[in-house]
Computed example of a mutant assay.
Amino acid sequence: MADVFPWPDAEAVGGWWNRRFDPEVDLIGADRTPAARTVFYAGSVKWLDDPFDQRDFAALRQGAAQVPGFVPESSGLVVVSRAGTHGPVAADLVWGPGEVVGAWR
């Protein structure tokens, strides 16, 4: 687990989807709720037996770009995967089960 969480100012964590539920973004880290001024990161949770792969990451990038307040040049991308990743994933943060549990300690 990283020693320092990259977005210490993220006070609220939730998800985001539009009225069609396409896309559904599992994680949004923001400065406040219900209407964020700053979106620090968007992320995807894959709690399956298959690793998170490049196709999953492309879907995350595409979905995150639709989140109001997400700025591709400054907002981060987060991957949370029970089975790890398949090859390198260009996420700003990749967590597995140990990091998720460790975050609550």
Rank of each mutant, 00 (worst) to 15 (best):
M1R: 08
A2N: 04
A2L: 10
D3L: 09
V4Q: 07
F5D: 05
P6Y: 09
P6F: 10
A10W: 06
A12V: 13
A12R: 11
V13T: 06
V13D: 00
V13Y: 11
V13M: 11
G14H: 14
G14W: 12
G15C: 04
G15K: 01
G15M: 02
G15A: 08
W17Y: 05
R19V: 04
R19I: 03
R19D: 03
R20N: 09
R20Y: 13
F21R: 15
F21P: 01
D22I: 00
D22Y: 00
E24I: 15
V25N: 07
V25R: 11
V25F: 07
D26C: 08
L27E: 11
I28P: 09
G29F: 14
G29I: 05
A30K: 06
A30G: 08
R32L: 03
P34F: 10
A35K: 13
A36L: 06
T38W: 13
T38L: 12
V39S: 11
Y41H: 12
Y41S: 10
A42L: 05
V45N: 09
K46A: 15
L48D: 14
L48F: 12
P51V: 00
F52T: 00
D53H: 01
D53A: 06
D56N: 00
F57C: 14
A58C: 03
A58P: 02
L60G: 08
R61L: 12
R61I: 10
Q62D: 06
A64E: 02
A64M: 03
Q66F: 07
Q66R: 15
Q66L: 15
Q66K: 14
V67R: 00
P68Y: 03
G69C: 10
G69Q: 03
V71M: 07
P72F: 10
S74R: 15
S74F: 08
S75L: 07
G76C: 06
L77E: 03
L77R: 07
L77N: 02
V78Q: 00
V78D: 03
V80H: 08
S81Q: 02
A83F: 02
G84T: 02
G84C: 02
G84P: 11
G87C: 01
V89F: 11
A90H: 15
A90V: 10
A91N: 12
A91Q: 05
D92N: 14
L93S: 10
V94M: 01
V94K: 05
W95G: 14
G96L: 01
P97V: 15
E99F: 00
V100N: 12
V101E: 13
G102L: 14
G102N: 10
W104K: 06
W104D: 13
R105P: 11
R105I: 07
R105S: 09
